[in-house]
């Protein structure tokens, strides 16, 4: 499968809420193929999340200037109106956020939240069909007792479980692209690995492209075939993961790779 799902050309994002405009993303170009997992790495404030928000169409448009092009399956979505995007967007793009504590609505039951995008995009479905699909979806993210979880509120779940629920609700319409904005940062290491494996499995089974944003290089190395290194709103380096890890070209990439804590070093301590 060689066809292109997402192409970004010369993306610029500038904030205008202060006297001096602030550029957070600067001339970003990238391509994502169907079924591919692309990692975006970089330190905090390097523009990773802003890029993700731009792809998802979630940037508030008042005090910022956005330039460039984002093509999703040949449709330009960056400058399209909200009503135009809405039809296909939620259906084709799903998102998982960093903080599992705030990514679920505290006053709604899990099942209701998982079903929400079905209610919007598959209005012809009956209640029973929606329920069946929601349970399936909860099962596919390896939650035990999906029927019980369905009826629970978010505060009754642990962080890792909530993140699974998030993945379930993002994946329920089987989107072509899943944006994972630091999905593992707030979780502990064992859960991190489970979530990464889960994403890997979903990618294989449903052929969903994943845009995996993280500052954790060791996770990115395990999950992604290709990576994109960002620094100060610019792409520093892009290419095959293996290539970049073994022969980093740029000084910044070397620095990042050098910053991965190694077990051998720890042993010496």
């Amino acid at each position: 499968m060689e066809d292109l799902l997402l192409e970004i050309k010369d993306l610029n994002i500038e904030f205008h809420d202060h006297d001096v405009p602030e550029r957070v993303v600067n001339g970003l170009n990238m391509k994502l193929k169907r079924g591919e997992i692309l990692g975006i790495v970089g330190e905090s404030g390097s523009g990773k999340s802003m890029t993700a928000m731009a792809i998802a169409g979630l940037l508030r448009r008042h005090d910022m200037k956005i330039g460039g092009e984002i093509n999703f399956e040949g449709t330009e979505i960056l400058h399209a109106s909200r009503t135009e995007i809405r039809g296909f967007q939620g259906d084709d793009i799903g998102i998982i956020f960093q903080e599992p504590m705030t990514s679920l609505n505290p006053v709604k039951r899990i099942g209701w939240q998982v079903e929400e995008s079905l209610r919007i995009h598959r209005p012809e479905m009956s209640k029973a069909q929606r329920y069946a699909l929601a349970i399936d979806s909860l099962k596919s993210v390896e939650l035990e007792e999906p029927e019980k979880t369905y009826k629970k509120y978010p505060h009754e779940l642990s962080g890792g479980m909530r993140q699974r629920v998030m993945i379930a609700s993002a994946m329920i319409c089987e989107p072509k692209l899943l944006i994972a904005d630091e999905p593992t940062t707030a979780l502990d290491v064992t859960i991190q690995l489970q979530i990464v494996k889960l994403l890997q499995r979903l990618n294989r089974e449903k052929n969903t492209s994943i845009l995996f944003i993280s500052h954790d290089l060791s996770l990115v190395k395990q999950l992604c075939a290709k990576i994109l290194v960002m620094h100060d709103g610019r792409v520093v380096e892009a290419g095959d993961t293996l290539e970049i890890f073994t022969h980093p070209k740029e000084a910044y990439t070397k620095e990042l790779i050098g910053a991965i804590p190694k077990v051998e070093k720890m042993k010496q301590l």
Binding site: A56, G57, L58, R86, G87, Q89, G90, D91, I93, G94, I95, F97, Q98, E99, T102, S103, L104, N105, K108, Q113, E116, S117, I120, H121, M166, S169, A170
Partner: peptide, 20 residues
Amino acid sequence: DYVKSARLAGVSSLRIIFVH
């Protein structure tokens, strides 16, 4: 974030305001 993901899921603004 849950409002953002509702927006991404294509939920209308009115529904986000009054239901979410």
